[in-house]
Write a protein that binds this DNA or RNA. Structure first.
Lengths: 106, 106
DNA sequence: ACGTCTCATCAGCGCGTGCTGATAGAACGC
DNA sequence: GCGTTCTATCAGCACGCGCTGATGAGACGT
């Protein structure tokens, strides 16, 4: 409902991180590059389900997929994660100073 | 559908950050402590809506609310944000090394 | 060429969630 | 006491989203 002006954290990334299965995928891909079938096996999820989650992660710029024969290898892109990490750190840092300020009410 | 074992990022926090309005609330609270009526005015949202979002943020441990007369002042708690920031940074750091590794398929 | 394997997309379903209006309660001013 | 203000909670609704089975496309082995 709200249009963001200069967001400290990207909406697509934040939304992608909101799902437990997608976070698990990111953790797995943080260890090594994996193809879809690996993820299906590791997660115990449906192939369709994994594929859908990968699409969300790809659209968020968190994952890049590369076709290798009939397999599709996926790798994690650190950039967006680091940007969001920095955004959250900035938010936390600011808030420490904000504890002293209280806008008067009424 | 998935039970997390030792999550790098907390589910409540990640879920709370997924909504644009809640992120805007966090940004506003990062600048100064505000009461509910301030947030209603700044966001142009309904009082009920803001109140619901604040409840989610409180349950995630991101915001603490304090009653001051008939007003309720809300402040951002940096702790969980910093923890998630660190978790994302760790994930990104790991992934840089993972780019070299590719699990064989089949 | 044919079957198999991997993977993505599609249509559909059910539940979670964001939003709302109405209600209730607590604090302040008169 | 009484009305007003600020806030949280409660039902209810509508949309989004995660999950599924089925289908289709591309690559490999025989």
């Amino acid at each position: 409902m709200l249009i963001e002006r200069s967001p400290l954290v990207d909406h697509g990334v934040a939304r992608a991180l909101a799902d437990p299965t997608r976070r698990r995928i990111l953790e797995l891909l943080a260890g090594e590059q994996l193809c879809t079938c690996h993820l299906v096996e590791e997660l115990g999820a449906t192939q369709t389900n994994v594929s859908n989650h990968l699409r969300v992660l790809r659209e968020a710029g968190l994952v890049v997929s590369e076709q290798a024969g009939r397999y599709a290898y996926h790798r994690l892109v650190p950039d967006r994660l680091e940007r969001m990490s920095a955004g959250l750190a900035a938010l936390a840092s600011r808030s420490r100073l904000a504890l002293a300020v209280r806008r008067p009410c009424g």
